[in-house]
Design a protein around this nucleic acid. Structure first.
Length: 348
DNA sequence: AATACGGGGGT
DNA sequence: ACCCCAGTATT
């Protein structure tokens, strides 16, 4: 018995039933792989189903508008993934006549497709013998071979890449890669790995030395920056004032309620009033605080308070600003705390 | 080689 | 609260 046969035998008995495993359509594999970047299977399932329903083929997606595409992505996070996917399918249509390239190198040239995703698509959709090294594989192999180097370092990744290539079968590389995902998701999990039921326990050096819980080794993360924000729920004639975030940076291109950053939290009302005046040239009355959220992003933590506001005079609106009514069923993509508030107000 | 980029589920 | 996930692009 070899590592790959033990793993595959386990996989064929225990493979998860996932929506993107129903066929080997490269476009669908692509969509699933992008959605699954840094995102759990459970979170992806519903998004994937709705996505495929609306954009069943690469050509359909290529014809869609970016705003609509973002709408289908809202709440999933890492929104450049959606933009890159859209740009990618357009590139396939324009450059490859709508036919997906089937070699890893060409696939990796598509926007948003890196080494891992290219390997996953090439192996799963086209039976190419290419590794797909993600967090699961790094964790599994660091335990299997007692690799105690920092898995975020290039040197450790090269080491794992070498080992994966050694153990990857020639007949079903896609199954092998997916088997590693499933093992990492259900057995060789980050904390408290279930080694008693692991099909590779007899081969696992980490398990033999009882150091499986100390692996893999990661760097210590740094403290997120705390930012205080006040947001205005500016109401006029049953409509709320919303604006589009900048094209680059955090929550790029998503819609939000106007906010001001606070230097002093206790001056929230005054700062909001002044901020609205500066941005929209209108005097607003700031009412009572309605919602309060602590929202942690990867490297910053928003302490954000929402205030009901009112203003009366009409005015010219700038680019990327509009009024939104809860009865329109408007298709604007939201994200972050704004998404939750928009849902509560019936705007999302 | 670092850093930016979301959000949610498990512990 | 904290951890970390089917990573990639940018600096």
């Amino acid at each position: 018995m070899t590592l790959s046969t033990q793993l595959l035998n386990w996989y064929y008995e225990n493979a998860r039933d996932l929506p993107w495993r129903k066929d080997k359509d490269a476009y669908k594999i692509w969509v699933s792989e992008i959605m699954l970047q840094q995102t759990r299977v459970e979170a992806v399932k519903d998004y994937y189903q709705r996505w495929i329903e609306r954009f069943p083929t690469l050509e359909v997606l290529a014809e869609a508008s970016e705003q609509e595409v973002l709408k289908y992505w809202q709440g999933l996070g890492y929104y450049t993934r959606a933009r890159n996917l859209l740009a990618g399918v357009r590139e396939v249509c324009a450059t490859y006549g709508g036919e997906m390239p089937n070699d890893e190198r060409t696939i990796q040239r598509l926007p948003g497709v890196g080494e891992y995703t290219a390997g996953a698509i090439a192996s799963i959709a086209y039976d190419r013998r290419t590794p797909a090294i993600d967090g699961n594989v790094l964790r599994i192999f660091s335990r299997l071979f007692c690799l105690d180097g920092d898995i975020t370092k290039q040197a450790t990744k090269r080491e794992v890449d070498h080992l994966v290539r050694q153990h990857m079968p020639y007949n079903c590389p896609g199954d092998f890669n997916q088997a590693l995902m499933d093992l990492g998701a259900t057995v060789c999990i980050p904390r408290n790995p279930r080694c008693q039921m692991c099909p590779l326990a007899n081969l696992c050096e980490g398990y033999a030395r009882e150091v499986q819980d100390t692996l893999p080794v990661r760097p210590v993360k740094k403290e997120p920056l705390l930012i205080h924000l006040a947001a205005g729920l500016v109401l006029r004639d049953g409509q709320y004032l919303v604006r589009r975030r900048p094209e680059r940076g955090l929550l790029a291109g998503m819609w939000e309620f106007p906010t001001v950053e606070l230097t002093e939290k206790r001056f929230a009302v005054e700062s909001l009033k002044e901020g609205l005046q500066n941005e929209f040239g209108q005097e607003a009355t700031v009412g009572k605080r309605e919602f309060h959220y602590i929202h942690t992003f990867s490297h910053r933590k928003w302490d954000i308070s929402f205030y009901h506001c009112q203003w009366f005079a009409g005015s010219e609106l700038l680019e990327g600003v509009r009024w939104l009514s809860s009865t329109e069923g408007n298709p604007l993509p939201w994200a972050g705390p704004h998404h939750k508030v928009a849902l509560a107000l019936g705007l999302a």
